[in-house]
């Protein structure tokens, strides 16, 4: 390799590194990162608690205190001990949720890229006081007919045998996500996401892959009724 080319390559590399390290928060990019969160969290006007709590007015909220959401004991304890969501605490939590709040119910492995976290936090900040933007419930774009199927709880209980080899029937986490007490619609959306392989876990793709729309509804009805 010619010396001048080597230098130019190095220069570009250094410039790229510097650019990465010093990049401004980009809420637009954060919105893209947030797609992974949408399966469980809503944000924006009309956002409701789903599998996870809604994220409006998150900045300044004491952890585990939103009315109407059933938090893990771990998250409630963290709040009682003074954990308040700020840019800094969110950054630490999102990097490795299960280290920051051990036994949190949030079944998310963590966001390793610091820039992704900065962008995501900037996006979330838009929904703190005074910032009202359009609701964000994409991902819930299943055929309404599928969401409307009434699940057979007794059949769901039988089918749940497949799930309970790994997931705890009492809703505790113990290394596998808690799947009890979910809003039925969220359960159905999640299972269809595994079935159509837009969620990536191979065991869950396999388990969901054989389920019919009626069977998914049955499981949602059964697990939705477990506390």
């Amino acid at each position: 390799m010619k010396r001048d080319r080597l230098i130019s390559v190095l220069t570009v590399a250094v410039a790229m590194f510097a650019a990465t390290a010093q990049a401004e928060p980009d809420p637009q990019a954060g919105e893209t990162v947030f797609r992974a969160c949408k399966a469980c969290h809503q944000i924006g006007e009309g956002a409701k608690n789903r599998v996870g709590p809604h994220l409006n007015d998150l900045n300044g909220r004491t952890a585990g205190t939103l009315d109407g959401f059933r938090y893990s004991k771990a998250m409630q304890d963290a709040g009682a001990q003074g954990l308040v969501w700020t840019d800094e605490t969110l950054d630490a939590f999102l990097a490795d949720p299960k280290s920051y709040v051990p036994k949190t119910k949030m079944g998310y492995r963590g966001l390793k890229d610091p820039q992704d976290r900065v962008n995501l936090i900037a996006y979330l900040a838009r929904f703190s006081p005074d910032a009202v933007i359009h609701p964000s419930n994409a991902g819930y774009d299943l055929d309404p007919a599928i969401l409307a199927i009434k699940g057979d709880v007794e059949y769901g209980e039988y089918l749940s045998g497949d799930c309970k080899t790994c997931h705890q029937a009492d809703g505790s986490v113990q290394g596998m996500p808690s799947i009890t007490g979910w809003p039925e619609e969220d359960f159905i959306v999640a299972m269809h996401a595994y079935k159509n392989k837009s969620r990536t876990h191979p065991v869950m793709q396999m388990m969901a892959g054989r389920l019919t729309n009626e069977e998914i509804a049955a499981l949602a009805a059964y697990f939705g009724g477990l506390q």
């Binding site: 309970k164 080899t165 790994c166 997931h167 705890q168 029937a169 113990q174 290394g175 596998m176 065991v203």
Partner: peptide
């Protein structure tokens, strides 16, 4: 390695699950 670590952690979850079952 992250995938392999997650697979191992998942196996521990499975162990708790099947024992409870």
């Amino acid at each position: 390695s992250a995938t392999r670590k997650a697979t191992y952690e998942e196996s521990e979850g499975w162990y708790s699950g099947i024992v409870a079952d």
